[in-house]
């Protein structure tokens, strides 16, 4: 068996990244390359810092008080943590979808148009909303009810609406934080299919607790683990096929086979 491990263009370069919540060190010296138009899965037990790491990519951790970041994340030759960078601009390029669908209490249309509005978009809103809903594979289901409240949609549809909301502002990177953990198997398959389509145009980073999901949807997998000081470290990152068939590190093998004591 040969595992293809070709190097693609790097979209996000993480260099010696450490994250502190007050005195607590949540992540220690993470270095990794996130490749363009690839799906990178972050896996690891609860509390290993994978969601913290995910939030670093679009500076969502800035929203938590007493958060301190050391190291760099280079995007487009710029350190996104350098002083001159506006985090809102970063978030328009690096979008995020959360674990639980969280549409706004607005119409389906307004949910998708929201990001465009706050970013001062002056083009054709109808076209952009339709494009984002088509991209998120929701258009056919909602095209006749765009003015209905977003809460009238099923959980799976709401999650795809959140994807559309993120896609509307044309980001480069999409961060997915356990996007299917609240969905049934059918809605899960739809999101996974969507990820497969979207990676042609976007770089995707996904946090998931479902090993088989990581194995199905991602090209690269990073395994994080926290040690005795509860501080998360990157144990191993490799081609997904390698991680789930013959991982290099024993900790990775123990985790993915469910033999963690």
């Amino acid at each position: 068996m040969t595992i293809e491990n070709k190097i693609n263009k790097v979209s996000l370069k993480v260099k010696d990244l450490s994250v502190y919540y007050g005195a607590f060190k949540a992540l220690e010296e993470i270095s990794m390359d996130i490749e363009e138009n690839q799906v990178t899965a972050l896996i690891g037990p609860s509390g290993c810092g994978k969601s913290t790491l995910l939030r670093c990519f679009n500076r969502m951790n800035d929203l938590f008080p007493n958060t301190k970041i050391e190291g760099q994340i280079i995007y487009d030759d710029i350190d996104i943590y350098s002083q001159a960078i506006d985090p809102v601009l970063i978030r328009s390029k690096i979008g995020m979808v959360f674990q639980k669908p969280n549409p706004f209490p607005k119409s389906i249309y307004d949910n998708v148009a929201f990001g465009l509005k706050i970013n001062g978009f002056v083009g054709n809103y109808d076209e952009e909303v339709e494009r984002a809903l088509i991209q998120s594979a929701l258009w056919e289901e909602v095209k006749d009810r765009l003015n209905d409240n977003a809460f009238s949609l099923s959980g799976g549809q709401q999650q795809r609406l959140c994807m559309a909301r993120a896609l509307a502002i044309r980001p480069d990177v999409i961060l997915l934080d356990e996007p299917t953990s609240a969905l049934d198997p059918i809605a899960t398959v739809k999101i996974e299919d969507l990820i497969n389509v979207l990676k042609k145009d976007y770089t995707i980073i996904i946090v998931t607790h479902n090993m088989q999901q990581a194995a199905r949807v991602s090209d690269k997998t990073a395994f994080l683990l926290s040690g005795e000081n509860r501080c998360g470290k990157l144990i191993e990152m490799d081609a997904t096929e390698k991680i789930f068939t013959t991982p290099f590190k024993k900790e990775t093998e123990d985790y993915i086979t469910g033999r963690f004591s």
Binding site: Q212, F244, T245, T246, E253, I256, T257
Partner: peptide
């Protein structure tokens, strides 16, 4: 059980 790695082998 959806085995992986050594378990699957």
């Amino acid at each position: 059980e959806q085995p992986l790695a050594t378990d699957l082998r």
